[in-house]
Design a protein around this nucleic acid. Structure first.
Lengths: 356, 356
DNA sequence: ACCGTATCCGAAACCGGTTTCGGAGCGCAA
DNA sequence: TTGCGCTCCGAAACCGGTTTCGGATACGGT
């Protein structure tokens, strides 16, 4: 309890040496005799000496800390993968005994201002940015500050900084191909606001997938909403109430897809039979949806780990533009995809006719 | 870019003052004339001066940082609420410009050793511990280290430290009462390893609920497994394959409950009709389960915020034993609870007779 | 005996802030 | 004019480490 934690001075006094000698002994300087080096290390162990990191880092000149910027929207539909990502990041940092700071931009100050304060205050050596906008001012800021950073995702122009991403465009092409093979020719797109780059990418993939399969791109089949389950329900509702409703829906997130399933249930349509639905994310939870959700799964496991490794490399002086890692998502077939139903486009109409 | 970030010395030189004067001016010391105080602050603003936090904290003597210890098990079934909790914690800390560190005990070193290193190295002023064991060595360690901490959850003996928890025992009494009112008399319990205090509490609540309703506590109706969906499936399988299977299941987590639903589906039993299922957590996801999961919901939203406030109070010198916050969970009725079915206990037997 | 060269350690500056202490300059009363 | 007190700022120590520089000792060779 009462014992002040032993610092270098105390340790030196205990050993009848000076602090400089002790410090160099602990740091394996060559100009310290092996004998005293061992003596110092032994005493340090026994007394439980732990260098004060604030002092150390001040002296060293690096904070030995990186920061993860939490995505804003943490509503009731929390981001399940934040925990996994942090775990991976922490793993990479632990190997160097670096620290992981998490920060959400202080709402009262504004994103940019609080980032600027963070790096200018010398607390962090690098930053991880999540879910960037199409043209994200945060990356510009980081570049002008000259502070190492890596982006989880991409912006529109992404040549001149490091990022790790999953190819959403490719994933949606794959999804559309799959649906086209099943006979679908009217496929609805449930998207998120296009200011998010990931939303734009996936829409691009949707369109490319359509043309690749010789299908027309009708703007009425594209619905944008907030990426929550409620947003998905609303968007799917609009699509299914069209005069010629789609026979399949692709959604930019699993959460939206789950919401879409609700909209189908409300219209007495069976997902995977009357209407196919494909989500995106590969959330573990989708397995328990009603029915189990077919989705484009991204390899979440290593994202955090890779982001950490990349960021550390850049801090070590590597060229950021060398790090452009694009992973591929793969189709996880569960139960919401199926061949186009014979009475396609009529199912809901007939159903709705007998209901009062 | 190239500009070294302005430090106190540079600012002082720019103003033709000494660093001590500038420092005191910025910190509103009374022995600085209002005139120079304003002059200093203005210049600081214009030059974008940000005090180096490492230096500041070394001098101040406090790291102005608290740490959240991530729960170990971050498998594919990630902890969805970690993000929410961190958001709340961060909010509380932001108001003071304190930092939030997250750390997962380094596996290679061991939980206790890495905690000990963390606090002895002067990096943190306080710690948040999650999901404690019945007798958790981490709280003992923190106590002997004399480092402020708060526990999210409780241990068996929890008088002499601060905690924030949801009353799991009460919640399970409530759940059993609800099921008893619906006519259930054989209720199975799907639990987690009893080394976790939360698992023990909820089992206690289960038992107390049974006796309170005049029901017998049969040990064969209690199944312990890992708290994953697979664990829930396995446990539910064992219970439903008993000679006299239960007509209702209570599960210590929503994830296990979801797994239990799978086991029911595999036996052609309809949750909420043939067998009732009640989970615990109130995960948003449960709404989209098949069928929507009835659950005991805990007020997750404020947990992080409260934990942060409590921890800061203790760091400020408040008596930790004053902080024992017990929240209540409430029943969220969705579709997996219902009256006991007339052919209770027979449904699966008959079903299984016609298969193969 | 003398010089040169390693080997090993102590002295001191430094990182960038905070805080205590003392003293210069001023006004005012005796 | 001397003395007292008040306002305002500079000098310097300190937080706890790291790192450069120089010097003392021992050792080898001639």
């Amino acid at each position: 309890m009462g014992e002040k934690s032993v610092n270098l001075k105390a340790l030196a006094a205990h050993l009848d040496l000076t602090v400089s000698t002790v410090s160099r002994a602990l740091n394996d300087y060559s100009d310290i005799s092996p004998a005293t080096r061992e003596r110092v290390k032994l005493a340090a162990d026994q007394l439980g000496y732990r260098p004060n990191q604030n002092a150390r880092r001040l002296s060293i000149g690096t904070p030995e800390t990186v920061c993860y910027l939490m995505p804003r929207q943490i509503g009731p539909n929390a981001q399940p993968f934040v925990a996994q990502l942090l775990a991976g990041l922490g793993e990479a940092l632990n190997e160097r005994n670096w620290d992981l700071l998490v920060s959400q931009a202080d709402a009262s100050v504004g994103d940019l201002a609080s980032i600027e304060r963070l790096v200018r205050s010398g607390r962090i050596a690098g930053l991880v940015i999540s879910r960037p906008l199409k043209n994200d001012p945060r990356v510009n800021l980081m570049q002008s500050l000259g502070c190492p950073f890596v982006v989880h995702g991409r912006t529109e122009k992404c040549d001149d900084y490091a990022w790790y991403d999953v190819d959403g465009e490719d994933a949606f092409v794959t999804a559309i191909n799959h649906l086209a093979r099943l006979g679908h020719r009217r496929i609805g797109f449930i998207g998120a606001p296009l200011q998010y780059q990931f939303a734009q990418e996936r829409l691009d993939g949707y369109i490319r997938g359509l043309t690749h399969n010789g299908l027309a791109h009708e703007t009425e089949l594209v619905q944008i909403a907030e990426f929550t389950d409620e947003g998905g329900t609303a968007a799917a509702g609009i699509l299914m109430d069209l005069l010629q409703p789609p026979t399949a829906l692709v959604c930019v997130t699993d959460m939206m897809a789950l919401g879409a399933l609700e909209a189908l249930h409300a219209r007495k349509l069976t997902p995977g039979k009357d209407v196919s639905v494909i989500g995106y994310d590969g959330l573990h939870f989708g397995k328990h949806a009603n029915p189990p959700l077919t989705t484009m799964a991204q390899p979440q496991a290593h994202a955090g780990r890779r982001l950490g490794d990349i960021l550390l490399s850049i801090i070590d002086g590597a060229d950021p533009t060398k790090f452009h890692e694009l992973q591929r998502a793969h189709l996880v077939q569960r139960s919401t995809d199926g061949p186009v139903s014979s009475n396609a486009g009529q199912a809901n109409v007939s159903e709705r006719e007998d209901s009062p």
